[in-house]
Simulated scan of single mutants.
Amino acid sequence: MTDAPESTSPAAGAVVGVDGSEQSLRAAHWAAAEAHRRKMRLTVLTAYSMPAFAASSMDGGYAMMDDSGLRAGAEGVIDQAKEFLRDYPGEVAYRIEPGDPSTVLLEESRTAELIVIGTRGRGGFLGRLLGSVSSALPAHAHSPVVLVPLQYSSRAENAVTTATGAIPIVSAADAPGAEPPQSLLDQGATPIHERDSRPVVAGVDGSDYGRVAALTAAREASERQTSLKLVCALPPVSAITMWAPTHIDDADAVEELQGKLYAGALWLNYHYPTLHIEYEVHSGTSVDVLVEQTRYAQLTVLGTRGRGGFAGMLLGSTSQGVIQHAEGPLMVVPEEEDRRIGNRDEFGPVL
């Protein structure tokens, strides 16, 4: 491992927010594996700030002492992350930033290629880093954000063969009753995956933001040498339209959506010719369908805005249900323009 000096250069690569919790170590594990796969720098970052009520009730001397204590605590978090990643073979930069964690990570997203956070963090000291951030950051970040759930696990049978042999991936989830952070540190786990054969899933809803997310998912699947699955959720049509003057059959609605997903798959294959693409329509709510997909996908990709479907829900209260219950890494792609969307209509009907 190369311990790079603290830096605020644009070469931040993959940035992972840590707070000393088991959840943030799992996020660091995923981020390190991803940085290694992409051959880019890994930046491990923690942030601290004095609670507003405390700062307003202290004079300068007490505030300075409290700031020193917070800084010392943040240094302890970084030391733990360094120990956890001590066998990581890539370049790592460790940084401590004063300020609100949400604001710090949002600013980092301007230059980072990827931001990685856990879905939950510590209560109390530094707890906000992975608490409210997991709901606020995805909707406003300038780079893709990956949320790593508590259930994330890289099991020991997943190993990569390198010049030094097979390196096991240790997971605390495999040892019920153990204290995950300590056991992970003791094992000195090297966070590198072997090629994962599970598909990348894209939740689509017919919006341009959803199409950008689908293109991102296609790129991810292509680079990971796996398949892409396009998934669309369809609430029971008969229940929604029971008062409509003309009856709409569920089977007809499913067939129509499948035709549009097929056209979307043709479009994506035009841009990624060698990619194997599957498509499915699932009955149920967007949240339920998406959470189910995260159990079997190596990565699930969504946009930040849409038509009230997969992408649209991430700006509403529904997002908390997805983030809290997802069982696999969830990538949220920011709003951005992509010229490739311009030729989507050439491949058939759109959602």
Rank of each mutant, 00 (worst) to 15 (best):
A218G: 13
L351K: 02
A31N: 06
V350L: 09
L45W: 02
G90C: 10
G321Y: 08
L185S: 02
V289D: 03
T241M: 15
Q324L: 14
R128S: 15
D288N: 13
F84L: 10
Y209E: 15
S21H: 07
A74E: 01
D249P: 08
G60K: 14
L25N: 00
P5R: 01
S183D: 05
S135Y: 07
E335L: 10
R38V: 05
Q23N: 15
S238E: 15
D87E: 11
S7W: 01
E22K: 06
D205T: 02
P89D: 10
D208I: 12
A233P: 02
Q258P: 00
P138R: 07
S286Q: 06
E336D: 14
L147Y: 04
A297Y: 06
I115A: 09
T216F: 09
F53V: 15
L302W: 02
A12D: 08
R95E: 13
E335K: 12
G321L: 11
E220D: 12
A11F: 08
G76C: 02
G61S: 06
E83Y: 09
S68G: 15
L126C: 01
A221W: 10
S9Y: 01
L129K: 05
L314M: 15
H193N: 14
G165I: 06
R305S: 12
S153Q: 14
M58N: 01
H247P: 03
Q187D: 02
G118N: 03
Y209W: 07
E179W: 11
P329W: 05
T46N: 08
Q324I: 04
S154V: 13
G13A: 09
G123R: 12
E256P: 00
P138Y: 03
P51L: 07
V116E: 12
A175N: 03
R155M: 09
P10L: 05
A202V: 04
A4W: 02
G342Y: 05
A27D: 03
R120I: 12
H271W: 13
I248D: 11
S317V: 07
D174M: 10
G348C: 12
A251F: 02
P149H: 08
R86D: 11
E336A: 15
A251E: 10
R26E: 03
L351D: 13
A72R: 14
R86E: 13
G188K: 14
V145K: 09
G90K: 04
L315F: 01
D345K: 10
A72C: 08
D19Q: 09
R305E: 11
L147S: 10
Q258D: 15
Q324W: 10
S207M: 06
G124E: 13
H247V: 13
L85N: 03
D19N: 10
R38F: 01
S222A: 15
V148G: 04
E107S: 14
E75H: 13
T46G: 09
